[in-house]
């Protein structure tokens, strides 16, 4: 089902963040919003996820959708292992399957069992990304999902992410056009 946003307005106190924003995102496709920092990208997906309320406007096609998200921060449970963090949101996925995917994302060996607080920033980012990708969802939000990854790792991770989100509804927020291209975004909304 397609998602429609009509004249969305949001302000915090007197500070307007989104003014009459409208857009359509096709179901089963990857869409991308490219906008400068401070434009309100994160606010927009927070509104779409129902974490905050719009001041005015209309959102359609989001009702009852199961959501998954890669937040701008990792938001991992520090004491839990990488595997446990991922399986936290998808307990129905078998451990071998999760560990297989982790390996595709370069998270094999020692990284599997260690508490995530002992992992590097790049590894934690991949855990957060994989958690979102393996969850059962109808719409996936990705807020700068490849932030902090080195170039080589980023290439591999983007290719694996593309494999996992193919045919699904996803909204990517980024500053980097290469990311949108690598994920096969059918619509790129560029706001500069």
């Amino acid at each position: 089902m397609d998602i429609g946003l009509r004249n969305i307005n949001k302000a915090y106190g007197g500070q307007r963040v989104l003014t009459d924003f409208s857009a359509d995102f096709a179901g089963g496709q990857i869409s991308c919003i490219m906008a400068p920092s401070g434009w309100g990208k994160t606010t927009l997906i927070r509104l779409m996820m129902g974490l905050e309320h719009i001041d005015s406007g209309e959102m359609t096609g989001l009702e009852g959708l199961r959501k998954s998200v890669v937040f701008q921060e990792d938001r991992l449970c520090e004491n839990l292992s990488a595997t446990a963090n991922i399986r936290l949101v998808c307990p129905e996925k078998s451990k071998p399957l999760v560990e297989g995917e982790m390996s595709s994302f370069g998270l094999g060996g020692d990284a599997l069992g260690k508490p995530v607080r002992e992992l590097s920033g790049g590894m934690r980012r991949r855990v957060a990304l994989l958690r979102a990708l393996l969850a059962s969802y109808d719409i996936l939000y990705m807020d700068e999902p490849f932030k902090g990854l080195d170039d080589d790792t980023k290439e591999t991770v983007m290719a694996e992410t593309h494999r996992l989100i193919l045919g699904k509804t996803a909204l990517l927020l980024t500053h980097d056009r290469r990311e949108a291209t690598a994920l096969g975004a059918s619509k790129i909304l560029e706001i500069y």
Partner: peptide, 19 residues
């Protein structure tokens, strides 16, 4: 922020409490 994560992923209350 973690609690918000549990809301988005719709984690059952017991699992959120436990983990």
């Amino acid at each position: 922020k973690l609690l918000e994560m549990t809301r988005v992923f719709e984690l059952p209350a017991l699992r959120a409490v436990r983990y």
